[in-house]
Design a protein around this nucleic acid. Sequence first.
RNA 1: GCCGGUGUGGUGAAAUUGGUAGACACGAUAGACUCAAAAUCUAUUGCCGUAAGAAGCGUGUCGGUUCGAGUCCGACCACCGGUACCA
Length: 806
Amino acid sequence: MSEYIPTFEHKMIDLKWQKKWYQSDLFEAEDFSEKEKFYGLVEFPYPSGTGMHVGHVRAYSSIEVIARKRRMEGYNVLFPIGFDAFGLPTENYAIKNKVHPRKVTDDNIETFTNQLKSIGFSFDFSRVVDTTDPDYYKFTQRIFLKLYEKGLAYKDKTYVNFCPSCKVVLSNEESQGGVCDRCGTKVVQKEKTVWFLKITDYADRLLNGLGNVDFNDRIKTEQREWIGKSQGASITFPVRDSDQSLDVFTTRPDTIFGATFMVIAPEHPLLEILSDRIKNRSAVRDYKEKAQTKTEFERVQLQKDKTGVRIDGIEAVNPLTDKTIPIFISDYVMMSYGTGAIMAVPAHDERDHAFAKEYDLPIVEVIKGGNVDEEAYTDTEKGELVNSGFLNGMSVKEAKKEIIAYLRKHDLGDKKNQYKMKDWAFNRQRYWGEPIPIVYCEKCGTVPVPYEDLPVTLPMVEAFEPSDEGESPLATIESFVNTTCPTCGGPAKRETDTMPQWAGSSWYFLRYVDPDNDQVIADLDKQKYWMPVDWYNGGMEHVTRHLIYSRFWNQFLYDIDEAYYEEPYQKRTSQGLILGEDGDKMSKSRGNVINPMDIINEYGADTLRTYILFIGDYEAATPWNENGVKGCRRFLDKVWRLQNNVTEQSGVTADTEILLNQTIQGVSEDIETLKFNTAIAKMMTLTNEWTSKKAVTKKEFEVLLKLLNPIAPHMTEEIWNNLGHDTWLANQPWPQHDPDKLIEDEIEIAVSINGKVRATMQMPTDSPKEKLETEALKLDNIKKYTKGKDIRKVIVVPNKLINIVV
RNA sequence: GCCGGUGUGGUGAAAUUGGUAGACACGAUAGACUCAAAAUCUAUUGCCGUAAGAAGCGUGUCGGUUCGAGUCCGACCACCGGUACCA
């Protein structure tokens, strides 16, 4: 027997193995290796000053375990990490503490890197990317120029959140609840001309691409709804006695005979164009002004009350009924969706119905089936068209087809798809972001910076506070703004807006494949080898923006032959939130934040890793529990102490063979389906078995060490070493179960009477049904219940149970 | 409002195709070891009840299908997430 070994010293062991790993090339991916590749990706962190959060640990742990398992399975694994380091918190911190954001970022990245290593993550640290590195954002700028070249980047007016007191443009996060984050002043909407990316051109492809990838349904649904495709028709309504007309989008062209009025958004351009004819101009103007000052909050609150103003002097014509119909302005019609104008069919649309009731407008039923005086009838399955001329008698489906054919024939409209997704507002009026590589020349106009002049670097200046009038801080830096035109050589000014947070993260997964390339974003052969990402895990909150934006960029890059595959991510999963011990969301203000570094100090990295995976269903939110941490440490201690119980016996003992094989199978499967909690539970069961027997053979113990290694790599590597190996446990082949040794020779069969279990019996596996039945009826407790009763039916489920119906 | 998810012991949670509900862990109680504590080990632990066992009751609520329902179906309630006058 071996000498007594104390419960392990985690600090020494953690440091020892981390040092060995990171000084070796153990986790480095090899380009073009003969082995099958596996590309596991986690969302790279924003390196904030507060350092790592337990949420980061959970987010990375899944792919971490998968990556380590894949290495043991013989894959060539790419498991990279980097930093999404441009952004407001760093900039605000820098301004407050009078340090340059470059310095803040570098410090934070260093802290973060050390923390990642102190958890023992098996990232390939030779491929780290940093979005704020000019060698990186040179390519972010290049992609922007390519988009510009293809007409997918354009400038347009928009409204930005502006604080009149701080005189600063605010992000949505900084203007929550309609007030300025720092001074509490009410935020106003300021008109500004900014860059947009035409992501709407890719709407259908982003939608269709979802058909070929393995994202869970919830993620696909959220993306689909974000894109928000609806099919319908565009229809032109002439304005009476005018050469003007109103185009509308509708999903219900079949109801056109019921269109008894029209509604346009308060910002609709027709109001300007036909301004002279409007008799109640001041009322219209008042309403428009009121609508604009309404905050989003107010608009949502007042959702049900319909308000509006009838435009006096302009009327439209329903092209199907030829009737003159009034036009209203109302804020229930948005300028930002569709054409900013609708045909109102009060009989079959709830909003139009409410509006018609409010303003006493005619409600004409065109689909039979409801009582349209009471409420809008919106069913599209059952009804039959009435009061609709040539559409009478048709179903909704038929009528849609017919009316579209009619509209097309008479040049009044056509089939049309409309999307909820809007073009991507690609701008920020702050310093710490990628400069947009555009120059404005008086003679040549908007001129892209030539590719060879990239990157347009951020000037390293002392003052980078936002300017007074909502311009980017870069606008006040003359050495940056004033430049020469790349085309004519004359004086020119640079674009001073920077790119938004989402830019750098929209293509970083490609850069990992070839992080040092200074010619292209990533070599196509390397992309062909590594891409697509086999498994991407990240937060549910990034499912719409980041995931859609990055898919858009990847598809665009594919179109211009700079990306090898059309879809970047083969599989996407999401971890659940870790809540505070009180069950609330972890936050500084609630004072319930757990610092992972404290756990590492007290219990070690392996305990932190094990606990975070054991805490509960990986994809569900679950509260932190300090006692649970202790329990996981206790489990690791037990595994450690098994070293004392290693017997001289070789091979595998007969009485744990089945359990061992079941564990191999169960753990292997559970890891693949993100059921880390049950995988760990199975290893606990095995450990408990050996602990109570006080005996385990070396061969058996080594199987457990291999299964546990991806979860608790430090301690298992140390034990592996103690057992006399001088190889990496991390490189050992993953255990395989023997399919013949999963089932016990004898199993317990439950015997129930009328569905209630009354007895159990031990029977040989695969006993014939008849045998089970006769044996069951012999049991004392069963006789008690069957005595004097008719046995009506006996149901035998082999190897499971017997149900006797009396 | 609409869409999606979840609801199981004191707690975190398990539970193939409907087939012994509560694996595993925490906490608790009792005991062993100890001068004592920590650590470790052993036993018990869904509720009710009992000397003990048996019986009874138990997966948000109500109903249904079935020999058998946490699992399937219908209605409802609660909580969480997404979305929001999207025409």
